[in-house]
């Protein structure tokens, strides 16, 4: 069979393939969805910067052919905020996992929503800390077994869309990596929103989470997603709770980017405050 280039080869660091993710891991699918969305978007390859934290999903930065930053654990969001503030023209995308963004980085996440800095946050949620061997994460469903909850987790997990909406995200969606086309569309929409947009991407972790919880292979988990997700666009994020083995909802929950972003609000405020000051100019970036 004649060999041609992979359709995403311009956007992937092919010299680093095969990547380090396990067989059946969904992160690669999420990256495909993101890169396909990027190709369809109005952004060129040089307009976008990708920022990751630490963990399996944190390695995304190392595989995409974009200006990309693999930062410290939990701190992708403040790094992205600093970059966006210095260079407002750049489209800044944070791509990381739920342990990184919602546990160690949880405070940064809610404050990013408050500030409404114009960044897109793509959160791969595989329900456990995978890179370190499958420990309890902020989204591990109650009763699920992990390395640090060998008898099952007795805490209630975070409902990420609910937190995102409460924090002030202008766009909130959740899809699984089974929903490749919807996921791609959601990312395409999210990256064009102004303000903090958020897409939760549910992914299997067959090596750790599915194995420990006797959920079968990655493929059977994908089929679980197919059969046990309810697409409910516009649903209340309160209902987006994920239980161990019950159906859960996916869809687009929030889509309203009418409020001012951090930089818009700052400029609008200062434009009035300093209207008489000859030295004042509307802020457009602080490149040297």
């Amino acid at each position: 069979m004649s060999k041609e280039k992979h359709p995403l080869s311009d956007y992937l660091r092919e010299d680093r393939m095969p990547h380090m993710w396990c067989p059946g891991c969904g992160i690669g699918i999420a990256v495909s969805a993101f890169l396909n969305a990027l190709k369809q978007s109005r952004y060129g390859q040089d307009d976008v910067v990708l920022v990751s934290g630490i963990g399996c999903a944190g390695r995304v930065a190392g595989y995409v052919k974009l200006d990309s930053f693999h930062t410290t654990h939990g701190r992708a969001i403040p790094f992205a905020e600093g970059l966006k503030a210095a260079s407002p023209k750049t489209k800044v995308v944070v791509f990381s996992g739920e342990g990184d963004l919602m546990s160690i980085g949880g405070n940064h996440f809610i404050h990013a929503g408050r500030k409404n800095m114009s960044i897109t946050i793509l959160c791969v949620n595989n329900l456990n800390y995978a890179m370190t061997g499958g420990q309890v994460s902020p989204t591990t469903p109650a009763k699920a077994i992990t390395a640090t909850a060998p008898f099952g987790s007795f805490c209630q997990p975070f409902n990420l869309p609910f937190i995102a909406e409460a924090a002030g995200a202008v766009y909130v969606a959740r899809w699984t990596v089974f929903h490749v086309r919807q996921l791609q569309k959601a990312i395409l929409e999210a990256i064009h929103k102004k303000g903090m947009s958020f897409v939760e991407i549910i992914s299997p972790c067959p090596t750790l989470y599915e194995r420990r919880n006797q959920m079968g292979t990655a493929l059977s988990r994908m089929n679980f997603y197919r059969e046990n997700t309810v697409i409910k666009n516009g649903a209340s994020t309160k209902d987006a709770v994920m239980d161990l083995d019950k159906p859960f909802i996916v869809g687009k929950f929030v889509d309203d980017d009418s409020k001012l972003t951090y930089l818009e609000a700052m400029n609008e405020y200062y434009d009035t405050t300093f209207s008489c000051d000859a030295n004042y100019h509307t802020y457009t970036g602080s490149k040297i």
Binding site: V51, F69, T71, T72, R75, I77, P78, F79, A80, E81, G82, L83, K84, A85, A86, S87, T90, N107, H108, H111, M266, Y270, T273, F274, D277, N279, Y280, H281, Y283, G285, S286, K287, I288
Partner: peptide, 30 residues
């Protein structure tokens, strides 16, 4: 505001110390 730059009060010092590095890679001195 009148020099032409930006100050961001962050949620904590951890955020501050990495946000400046994002800003540096974004082209600023920070």
């Amino acid at each position: 505001p009148c020099v032409g730059g930006i100050f961001m009060q962050m949620e904590d010092e951890i955020a501050s110390s990495i946000a400046i590095q994002g800003a540096v890679w974004g082209g600023a001195k920070a």
